[in-house]
């Protein structure tokens, strides 16, 4: 692997962009296949009776698979582009978390509280 990497850098030393190696791509692909197959299996065969638990598990698999793709396919390292791409990524992840959690949280409560007649019904004798 190291000899291969040296050959890469010799004719392509500028820019500092990594291309990865055959081994890296194959490891990433292998992990992705496993991390994709398990959630599909869990949902399609209804392996776990508890739907909430299944949802949490497949979300965890998705999060791990996204990290696997970032490392093995997009070649993200803290040092790439002098750290700027990682900084942009962290900033984006923070924004995405705010957008997603904020939207879901606010709209869930809006739906729950604005249900027509709900409060009146509860106050009825």
């Amino acid at each position: 692997m190291s000899a291969h990497d040296h050959a890469d850098h010799a004719d392509h030393g500028h820019g500092g962009a990594a291309h990865g190696s055959l081994k890296g791509y194959l490891i990433g692909f292998f992990l992705s296949v496993i991390l994709t197959a398990i959630p599909f299996w869990l949902v399609m065969d209804g392996v776990i009776d508890n739907k909430q638990a299944t949802a949490v598990i497949i979300m965890a698999f998705a999060a791990v698979q996204i990290i696997v793709h970032m490392i093995f396919f997009l070649h993200m390292t803290p040092a790439s582009e002098g750290g700027w791409s990682m900084l942009a990524l962290i900033f984006t992840v923070i924004l995405v978390v705010i957008v997603l959690s904020g939207s879901l949280w606010v709209m869930y409560h809006l739906n729950a509280n604005m249900m027509p007649g709900l409060h009146e019904m509860q106050q009825m004798p």
């Binding site: 291309h19 990865g20 055959l22 791509y25 194959l26």
Partner: peptide, 10 residues
């Protein structure tokens, strides 16, 4: 398609 693009890059 992701892995084959990786091979194209290699």
């Amino acid at each position: 398609s992701s892995i084959t693009y990786g091979f194209a890059m290699l």
